[in-house]
């Protein structure tokens, strides 16, 4: 009985020792830079950089989303909300974080309707007509960001300033 109790007792002590050693190894492994980015696992600041990650530098107003290997500035709140982001998604990162990353074209809410060739940037309640393809490309917009919406919806929206400004009266869809 005495031997059995001593054996049981040493099991607990042995497990504690093993747990200590195991944790030490795990802590070391987690903090050694092993992955292909040369960062630790998880990488610094618990950020897992993958599509959909939303970040904001501590002392900068701009909010960026990671898409296709680059960070894209979310141009306005309407776009932020339209993409289904909420404030809780925004990771605050240190200043200069984006300097070390590839930054792509800004992310805007672009829309057109089936029966019209015109493309608009949606900002809040208004639509802003983009004058031509050259402007579209020069502004860094991407065709894959253009969403098809009913023409009636676009027609009902009041016009904002054209892109670029002073391009004459905006064309209607």
């Amino acid at each position: 009985m005495g031997i059995k109790q001593t054996q049981t007792r040493s099991h607990g002590t042995r497990l504690m020792k093993q747990l200590i050693i195991g944790l030490l190894v795990a802590i070391a492994l987690v903090n050694i830079p092993l992955n292909r980015h040369g960062t630790t696992l998880p990488d610094t600041a618990s950020l897992v950089v993958r599509d959909g990650l939303v970040v904001k530098e501590e002392n900068d107003e701009g909010i960026y989303v990671y898409q296709d290997g680059q960070f894209r500035w979310i141009s306005n709140m309407a776009t932020f909300e339209a993409y289904g982001f909420v404030w809780g998604d925004v990771h605050i990162v240190g200043d200069g974080f984006l300097d070390r990353s590839k930054v792509g074209p800004p992310l805007s809410l672009l829309a057109k309707c089936d029966t019209s060739p015109h493309v608009y940037v949606l900002e809040g309640e208004t639509k802003r007509w983009i004058r031509d393809i050259e402007t579209f490309v020069a502004e860094g917009y991407r065709w894959e960001d253009v969403q098809i919406v009913p023409c009636e919806t676009l027609r009902k929206m009041p016009d904002g300033e054209t892109i670029p400004p002073n391009s004459g009266p905006p064309k209607q869809p």
Binding site: I20, L23, L24, N31, T40, S46
Partner: peptide, 20 residues
Amino acid sequence: LIFFALHGAVMGSSHSVWQA
């Protein structure tokens, strides 16, 4: 001391080696 230190290191490992 050992047990708290180990748990603290695990907590801090979510950030960086210095935090650990």
